[in-house]
Amino acid sequence: MSFSATTQINGKTAIISIAGELDAASAPAFRQEIEQAAAANPEHLVLEMSELEYMASAGLRVLIFAKQKMGVNVDVYVVAAQEMVLETLEKTGFDQSVIIADRYDTAVTA
């Protein structure tokens, strides 16, 4: 499945929904969405991943870029990640740098 990324800005929250396979070929498109979202100076960056089926090293690189681009004051949420993606985030320790959640709305009010 090909990769797609769409960004929505709701006030101080930027939501990027990504789907398909995040690898070296699709990473630049994702990166562009992140830069666009960062330009809106959000307080929360939400990465909606329920449709993301695969993430290669290049994908992890962009996530690391997202976290560092946003800065320490922006909370990054990884929402509804599938098992493979979640496992990768755990093993590489990236889960320590972001907030992992099933749903953004419940995570943010919790």
């Binding site: 992890l60 990768t88 320790g93 320590q96």
Partner: peptide, 18 residues
């Protein structure tokens, strides 16, 4: 565990950091 994805560098660094 992520060697097959080529992410061993991240995995080891994450261990050291923790």
């Amino acid at each position: 565990a992520t060697g097959k994805y080529g992410m061993q560098v991240d995995e080891l660094k994450s261990l050291v950091k923790d």
